[in-house]
Design a protein around this nucleic acid. Structure first.
Lengths: 247, 247
DNA sequence: TATTATTGTGTCTTTTTGATACAATGAATG
DNA sequence: CATTCATTGTATCAAAAAGACACAATAATA
């Protein structure tokens, strides 16, 4: 709920946004052999939340989410998938919101539109970690990466949302090229394997993984990378084209 | 959008429902070796639509959908899955809605809440065809089954919704017991195979299908069914317990 | 030059899948 | 009542995929 509200004046009433509808995004990146996600920390509260926002009255849902993601990451053409809509009544918690608003000097009248009930459409995005320039929003003082296996406590049902995003991501492994979006243009076989291991949550046989990936025809091999490490230099690979996946 | 509005009085203003939020359901059933879905036909319009409804202000999204499904089918404990939320601006079409409202004697003022923009959360449900007692709603004069490979033209983006529901259903084949929900308690191997063939949209080898299903350990075999047909009587099977699937 | 930590490949076994064959069964046929 | 017919249950064989593991290649380092 670290909501993107570019112009805080608009926030005073919610007239520019569709009432009751929000989105949250789980942004995955890969670095240091770990799968990570983006979290916002609210100013003066110690509260962590997923980046999210509202949907302009004249805006397609997808476009609203994409715009929010692009603004926060500085990237364009982001790969994203909608995975679930959270609509329980009890996902609201006025006390948390009031705390955030108070810490930001926003008057929290009892019938403030932000305190009303919201249904949240959740998306996950896969981005190239290295390419991102993070940009916190008006209410947050930080926007940073956290490994999915060591997240801080999140507000509201955001923990559940992350859980479901991971599930959805694992699912899509069957049908989509995940590595392509999470890794830079060129990468080693080891990095690719680590991405899959992180997502699937299990160890894979190195030799067999390599065999399958090569056999899939998805990869193009480039010149070897000289790492300066005490062993054979690994080849670099890149994705060639979109085909059905291997798993 | 054949919306369940039990009390038409409530409809006059949308105060009892969350603004801008609707749901649509794609109800799958299996009969006569075909996969079918439920469609509503609006009175005096010839327009077909998915059954749907709105979300009460104090109601969980899932519960609202479940309640609507139960009311329409007369069943309880329905298996349902949310699969996508449709949020494009242009999914609205005031002229269609006005036509429906007019045909039902509802005054369609320019700012009627039904004519406002709606985001629709879509669910699919799997039900035992034979157990259903269909129940049209106030705006519809029929509620009936149509084979998915021969649907009439649907209003708005409902065609797209059905398309996506089928996709989602195919996906879930990898991980869920679909036959269990679409077939009666006991069924023949042939019926089970037909369900899978309908959903996957491809022919399966009878002998291999049988082998895999038996090997999966999901099925319990019962006494053979004497059909009166000129051949060996097939065994009846039922599902034993929930395990990970075979495909 | 041997050692070490990888990476790239080869190969053997096991499991899964696809294709096909065939026996069993219950009614219909004459 | 034997024969034919349609369909079901099971077996079998070959091909493909997956899992396990061995080993050669290579770049730094000692």
């Amino acid at each position: 709920m670290s909501r993107k509200i570019a112009n805080p004046a608009k926030q005073a009433d919610g007239k520019d946004y569709l009432a009751h509808i929000a989105y949250d995004s789980v942004v995955f990146g890969f670095s240091g052999d770990k799968l990570k996600i983006l979290l916002m920390e609210y100013r003066n509260t110690g509260l962590f939340a997923l980046p999210g926002g509202f949907v302009g009255r004249k805006m397609n849902l997808d476009d609203a989410v994409r715009a929010g993601l692009e603004e926060r990451t500085g990237l364009s053409g982001i790969y994203m998938e909608q995975f679930h809509t959270f609509g329980d009544c009890n996902r609201q918690d006025a006390s948390v919101l009031k705390k955030i608003m108070k810490a930001n000097g926003i008057e929290a009248e009892k019938d403030h539109w932000l305190l009303d009930r919201f249904i949240s459409v959740a998306y996950y995005a896969l981005i190239n970690y290295k390419a991102v320039k993070l940009q916190p929003d008006a209410l947050s003082d930080s926007c940073d990466w956290y490994p999915v296996d060591a997240l801080p406590q999140l507000i509201l049902d955001h923990g559940k949302i992350v859980e479901k995003a991971l599930q959805a991501l694992r699912w899509n492994t069957d049908d989509r090229i995940i590595g392509m979006k999470l890794l830079p243009e060129k990468f080693t076989m080891k990095e690719l394997q680590q991405v899959y291991e992180n997502i699937l949550g299990e160890q894979l046989e190195r030799a067999n993984f390599q065999r399958k990936m090569i056999a899939s025809g998805l990869l193009t091999r480039h010149a070897a990378q000289f790492t300066g490490k005490a062993h054979k230099a690994p080849y670099l690979y890149s994705f060639a084209e979109k085909k059905t996946s291997v798993f």
